[in-house]
Write a protein that binds this DNA or RNA. Structure first.
Length: 953
RNA sequence: GCGGGCGUGAUGGAAUUGGUAGACAUGCCAGACUUAGGAUCUGGUGCCGCAAGGUGUGGGAGUUCGAGUCUCCCCGCCCGUACCA
C-alpha cells in the first residue's frame, strides 16, 4: 500500500472513530471545556450540496484543533426537524412527515459521516422527537407562568404577581403588559371571577393569547412572523401575505428589548450582524406627548424623537386604524373619512410598500390643542402613519420631517420654519445638526436641539402633558402556526380560558390526522384529530385528571413556529443521553451539565438567522436565566457567519423560435435565450458535452448545435445560488468519491475566507488534492534494497536545522491562522511546508510526527493513517498539539524603527535576538534601504527596546 | 433613503495591520521523463520593454521618509433594512 488510497483510508478511520466513540465528550472532565457548535440543519429532501458543509468543516477544524490543545470539546450535531417542506410533501403525497423526516435525516447523516466530522453523535437531538419537544412544551409552560417586572428588570413567577394583586391590586406594578390593562385594587381583584382573573393574568404572561393583526399567508394557510416575510411575500415559496386579525399566541419579546440591545456589547459577533439586531430592536429615545382635543374628553398621545420641534407642529396625523378616529371625526367629515379608511384597509401591505410616493390622507374635522401655545391644530388621517409603531399618531412638523413636509405640501397645510438660518423652501431640515439653533419657539428659542428637547420634556412633565420615553421597534413575536408538523401547545381551554397541561403529562404528543390540511371549518390540521393521545393509553383529553365534571376540554389546535425548538437546543446537547446515564428524561439539561459547559464558545452558521433564530434564542436564554433555569445570559459567545457557496450555472444559447443552440462566442445579433444546462455536462473549459445534453431532455434530442471552429460548444456561465432548479448543484458525495473527503474539506476551506460568499469552482480542487498526495509521499520513499519499490520509511535520526525551521515556522503560522479563522492561509502554509520538506528529502520522525498533527484538523483521515504508520496505537486526535519553538526560526524578525541623524526614517527587519538593550550588530542593508539613506550605508545599529534605533555610521 | 462591507494579475485569493505588493493555488507558457496520461518533475508567468528600466492595488486629492492599508471626494459592486415619527 504505497499509493494514497483515500477511499480505503477514509472508510477505515470513519469506522474506527464510530466504533471507539473517539469524539464522545465527557461531562465531568477536569480539562477546560470548549463548546463548538454548528447551526443544526433542517433535513430537506434534496440532501446536502457542497455549500452546506462549509460551516461544519470550519467548526470541525476548530473542534479537532482544540482537542489537540487538550480541551474537553463538545461538538454535537442534530436536526431542526419540524418544518414546512415535510408537511407540504405530506399534503401532496399523504406520507406522514415523520416518515419523510426520518428518511431525510438518514441521508443527511450518511453524507455527513462521509466527510469525516468529529461530532459526538451520542448527544444528537431532533426537535420533532417527543422526548425533545416535551421540553420545548415545558419551557412554553414556564413562559406562561411568568411575567416581566420592569422594576426588577427580570422575569418573575406569576404566583408572585397574583400575591401582589391580592394584597395591593395592580397599581404598584410596573410590568411589561398590554397597554390597555385597567387598574384595580386588591379588593376588586378578589371580587373578580376565576375567569376574569385568568383573563387579566393573560395580559401579563410572557406568552399570551391576544387578538393580533398578523401576516396571513393564504397560500400556506398560516401566519408568518415579520422575519419570515421578504419584500412583502413569504420567505418560503414567495406567496403573497395579507393583514388579518386572529387570536394568536404571542411571545413578549418586547419586554427584553433593552437587554437584548445591551447584551450585544458583551458578545463577540460580527459587527454587521450586531447592527442588524440593533436595527431590528430599533431603539429611539424621545418623548410621549399628550394633545388635548378641542371640545372633547379625548387625548391623543404621540411619540416623537424630536420634542425640540414642538413649536413647529402645524397639524397631526393619525393612522387610519387609530382607535380615536371614529370618536373625534366631525359629522361633516364622517363620510369622507369612512371611505378613506375602507380604501386603505383594502390595500395590502405589499401595495402600500410599492406605493410610497403616493400621498393620501383626509381631514377629520377635529382640532387638537398645542400644549404650550394652546393654538388649534387640525387632525388628519394618513396611511404614512403606521398603527403598529409608537402610538399610531404623530405630531406633524413639516419643517423638520420630510414625510410631514410632503404631506403638508400636498394638502396645502402651513409649514412653519423654527430653525435659525435654515432654508426650508425645498425640503425639510431633518438632521439633528449640532449647529442648528431653534427659533420662533417660545421658551426654547435660541437653544440647540438637544438642550431644547430636554427643556421641552421637563416642561411637559411639569404641566402633566408628557414625559421622556424610549420606544422600540421590536414587536412581540407571534407564536402560533396553523400547521401540523410542529410542537403542539401544552394548552387546553376551560371556559374559553387557556390552561397548561400538568408537567408530568408531557409530552403532549402530536395526534394522527388523516389529512394534513385545515378542516372544512377553517381550523388548523390538528382539528382533524379524533383521538388525541397525550399520554400512553389515555385518550383524548384532560377530563379524567383535571375536571371535576367529566367535561372534555378542547386542546389548542395551533402548533409552535419553527424557532421554538431551535431557541434552546444548545442546552440539550449538554445533557447526556439516557443510554449514557444522562438525565435527559428528567430535565431539559441538568444543572451540573450546564454549569460545566456554560454557553457556546464558538457558533458557526449563516447570517440569514440574524433577526430570527439568533434573536429568539437570546430572548429565551435571558428568560431561562431570569427564572434561574440556566446559568448564562447569552447563548453564543463568539459567532461566525460562514459565507454562502454559490453555484456556477451554465447556459447554452438557444435561438428564438428555433431548436438550435449557438456556442457562446458565435452569438452576435441573433435573438438567443440562455437555457440552463446541468453543470455536470460541462468541462472546465466551459465546453458542453453535446451528446449527454441531447439525451437529457426529449426536446433537445433533435436540437442542432452550432459549434466553434474546433468543434467545441462553449456555454455561458453565471454565478447564482446553488439550487436544484438551476442545475448547478455540486454534490459532496461525488467529490468524496473522486478526490476523497480530506480533499473536499481542505478545498472548501482553501476556496477563500470563511465569511465571504464565493462560487464553487471544481477546477482548483487538484491543488489541494496534489498537496495530500505530496504529503503522503513524504512518508513513503523508494527503497533501493527492494528494487526501488516505494515503502513507508521514517528516519529516527535528528532532523537538520532547515527542516526544523520550516516545521516551526509552519506551526506558528497554522496555529495563528486557526485561532483567527484564516483557514485558507493556514492551508497555504502547510503546502509550503510540504513542498520544502519534499525538496529537502526530509523523512525524520522529529519532523513528520508533528506535521501529521498539524494536518489532522484539516485532513483527519490521512493524518490518522500516517499516525498509525508512525507506529502509534492511539488516535491522533488524542495527541497534543506541537509546541512552537522560536529558536528554530532563525529569521524570525521584528520591525524596528530606524532613525538617521535624529530623524525617524524607516523601519527595518531585525532578528529577535537583537531586541536586548544595547546590543550592537552590523547589519546588511538592502538596495532600497541604501537609497533611502542617500547612499550612506549604516555599519552598526544600537537597539533600544521601545525607543528609536540609532544608526552609527 | 439609511446602516454595514467591499474594489489587488487571466481566476480564487495573500500581504506580519503603515514597511520589498501579488504568498499559496488554479490557469497558461516552456522543458524533462515517458508503451501518450486528466500522471510526475523542473523552470517561467502583474503590465510595457530585447534589455537597462519604467509602471502598477477602481478614479482623484491629502497625511507620511514610506500608503493596497489612514483621511476626504467621486465611481462601481454586494449584503441588510425600509413610510419607525
Amino acid at each position: 500500500m504505497t499509493q494514497y488510497d483515500f477511499n480505503r483510508i477514509e472508510k477505515k478511520w470513519q469506522e474506527y472513530w464510530a466504533e471507539n466513540e473517539i469524539f464522545k465528550a465527557e461531562n465531568n472532565s477536569k480539562k477546560e471545556k470548549f463548546y463548538c457548535l454548528d447551526m443544526f440543519p433542517y433535513p430537506s429532501g434534496a440532501g446536502l450540496h457542497v455549500g452546506h458543509p462549509l460551516g461544519y468543516i470550519a467548526s470541525d477544524i476548530v473542534a479537532r484543533y482544540k482537542r489537540h490543545q487538550a480541551f474537553n470539546v463538545l461538538h454535537p450535531m442534530g436536526y431542526d426537524s419540524f418544518g414546512l417542506p415535510a408537511e407540504q410533501y405530506a399534503i401532496q403525497t399523504g406520507q406522514h412527515p415523520a416518515v419523510t423526516t426520518k428518511e431525510n435525516i438518514a441521508r443527511y447523516r450518511q453524507q455527513m459521516d462521509q466527510i469525516g466530522f468529529s461530532f459526538d453523535w451520542s448527544r444528537e437531538v431532533r426537535t420533532s422527537d417527543p422526548n425533545y419537544y416535551k421540553w420545548t412544551q415545558w419551557i412554553f409552560i414556564k413562559l406562561f407562568e411568568s411575567w416581566y417586572d420592569n422594576s426588577q428588570n427580570k422575569a418573575c413567577d406569576i404566583q408572585e404577581l397574583i400575591a401582589i394583586f391580592s394584597s395591593k391590586g395592580n397599581i404598584t406594578i410596573n410590568a411589561a403588559c398590554d397597554q390597555k390593562t385597567e387598574t384595580f385594587t386588591a379588593d376588586e381583584w378578589k371580587a373578580f371571577s376565576e375567569k376574569e382573573q385568568q383573563e387579566i393574568l393573560l395580559k401579563y404572561r410572557l406568552t399570551y393569547l391576544a387578538e393580533t393583526e398578523v401576516n396571513w399567508c393564504p397560500a400556506l394557510g398560516t401566519v408568518l412572523a415579520n422575519d419570515e416575510i421578504v419584500n412583502g411575500v413569504s420567505e418560503r415559496g414567495g406567496h403573497p401575505v395579507e393583514r388579518k386579525k386572529m387570536m394568536q399566541w404571542s411571545m413578549r419579546v418586547s419586554a427584553y428589548a433593552e437587554r437584548l440591545l445591551q447584551g450585544l456589547n458583551k458578545i463577540d459577533w460580527p459587527e454587521s450582524l450586531k447592527e442588524t439586531q440593533r436595527n431590528w430592536i430599533g431603539k429611539s429615545v424621545g418623548a410621549e406627548i399628550q394633545f388635548r382635543i378641542q371640545n372633547s374628553e379625548f387625548k391623543i398621545f404621540v411619540f416623537t424623537t424630536r420634542p425640540d420641534t414642538i413649536f413647529g407642529v402645524t397639524f397631526m396625523t393619525l393612522a387610519p386604524e387609530h382607535e380615536l378616529v371614529s370618536e373625534i371625526v366631525t359629522p361633516e367629515q364622517k363620510e369622507e373619512v369612512e371611505v378613506y379608511i375602507k380604501q386603505t384597509g383594502k390595500r395590502s401591505e405589499r401595495e402600500r410598500m410599492a406605493d410610497i410616493k403616493n400621498i393620501t390622507g383626509v381631514f377629520t374635522g377635529a382640532y387638537a390643542e398645542h400644549p404650550f401655545t394652546k393654538e388649534a391644530i387640525p387632525i388628519w388621517i394618513g396611511d404614512y402613519v403606521l398603527a403598529g409603531y409608537g402610538t399610531g399618531a404623530v405630531m406633524a412638523v413639516p419643517c423638520g420631517d420630510q414625510r410631514d413636509y410632503d404631506f403638508a405640501e400636498h394638502f396645502e397645510l402651513p409649514i412653519n420654519n423654527i430653525f435659525e438660518n435654515v432654508d426650508i423652501s425645498k425640503e425639510a431640515h431633518s438632521d439633528k445638526d449640532k449647529n442648528t439653533v431653534i427659533a420662533h419657539s417660545g421658551f426654547i428659542s435660541g437653544l440647540m436641539w438637544d438642550k431644547a428637547a430636554k427643556t421641552v420634556i421637563e416642561k411637559l412633565e411639569e404641566i402633566g402633558q408628557g414625559k421622556g420615553k424610549t420606544n422600540y421597534r421590536l414587536r412581540d413575536a407571534v407564536f402560533s402556526r396553523q400547521r401540523y408538523w410542529g410542537e403542539p401547545f401544552p394548552i387546553y381551554y376551560k371556559n374559553g380560558v387557556p390552561h397548561t397541561i400538568p408537567e408530568e403529562n408531557l409530552p403532549l404528543r402530536l395526534p394522527e390526522v388523516e389529512k394534513y390540511l385545515p378542516t372544512e371549518t377553517g381550523e388548523p390540521p390538528l382539528g382533524r384529530a379524533t383521538k388525541w393521545h397525550w399520554d400512553e393509553g389515555k385518550c383524548s383529553v384532560v377530563s379524567d385528571q383535571l375536571a371535576d365534571d367529566k367535561t372534555v376540554f378542547p386542546l389548542e389546535l395551533n402548533t409552535m413556529p419553527g424557532w421554538a425548538g431551535s431557541s434552546w437546543y444548545f442546552f440539550r446537547y449538554m445533557e447526556l443521553a439516557i443510554s449514557d446515564g444522562g438525565k435527559r428524561d428528567e430535565v431539559f439539561a441538568s444543572k451540573d451539565a450546564m454549569n460545566y459547559w456554560k454557553n457556546v464558545d464558538l457558533y458557526i452558521g449563516g447570517s440569514e438567522h440574524g433577526t430570527g433564530h439568533l434573536l429568539y434564542s437570546r430572548f429565551w436564554v435571558k428568560f431561562l436565566y431570569d427564572r434561574s433555569l440556566v446559568p448564562v445570559e447569552e447563548p453564543f459567545q463568539k459567532l461566525i457567519n460562514q459565507g454562502m457557496i454559490l453555484g456556477e450555472s451554465a447556459f447554452g444559447y438557444r435561438l428564438e423560435n428555433e431548436n438550435k443552440f449557438v456556442s457562446k462566442n458565435l452569438v452576435k445579433n441573433q435573438k438567443a435565450h440562455p437555457i440552463h444546462t446541468d453543470v455536470s455536462f460541462v468541462n472546465i473549459h466551459n465546453g458542453l458535452n453535446i451528446e449527454v445534453f441531447k439525451n437529457w431532455r426529449p426536446e433537445y434530442k433533435d436540437a442542432e448545435f452550432i459549434t466553434e471552429e474546433d468543434g467545441k460548444f462553449i456555454v455561458h456561465r453565471e454565478v447564482e445560488k446553488m439550487s436544484k432548479s438551476k442545475y448547478n448543484v455540486v454534490n459532496p458525495d461525488d467529490i468524496c468519491e473522486e478526490y476523497g473527503a480530506d480533499t473536499l474539506r481542505m478545498y472548501e476551506m482553501f476556496l477563500g475566507p470563511l465569511e465571504q460568499a464565493k462560487p464553487w469552482n471544481t477546477a482548483g480542487i487538484t491543488g489541494v488534492h496534489n498537496f495530500l498526495k505530496k504529503l503522503w509521499k513524504l512518508y513513503v520513499w523508494p527503497n533501493s534494497s527492494k528494487g526501488g519499490k516505494s515503502e513507508f520509511y521514517i528516519s529516527e535520526e535528528k532532523a537538520n536545522p532547515e527542516s526544523l525551521k520550516i516545521l516551526h515556522k509552519t506551526i506558528k503560522k497554522v496555529t495563528d491562522d486557526i485561532e483567527s479563522f484564516g483557514f485558507n492561509t493556514a492551508i497555504s502554509a502547510l503546502m509550503i511546508c510540504v513542498n520544502e520538506l519534499s525538496a529537502q528529502k526530509c523523512n525524520n520522525r522529529e519532523i513528520l510526527e508533528p506535521l501529521a498533527v498539524l494536518v489532522s484538523p484539516f485532513a483527519p483521515h490521512i493524518a490518522e493513517e500516517l499516525w498509525e504508520k508512525l507506529g502509534h496505537s492511539e488516535s491522533i486526535s488524542e495527541v497534543n498539539y506541537p509546541i512552537f519553538e522560536e529558536r528554530y526560526v532563525v529569521e524570525n524578525t521584528k520591525k524596528y524603527p530606524i532613525s538617521f541623524n535624529g530623524k525617524m526614517r524607516f523601519t527595518m527587519d531585525l532578528p529577535l535576538d537583537l531586541s536586548k538593550e544595547g546590543i550592537e550588530k552590523t547589519v546588511m542593508t538592502d538596495e532600497r534601504t541604501k537609497r533611502q539613506l542617500e547612499g550612506k550605508t549604516p555599519k552598526k545599529i544600537i537597539v533600544v527596546p521601545g525607543k528609536i534605533v540609532n544608526i552609527v555610521s
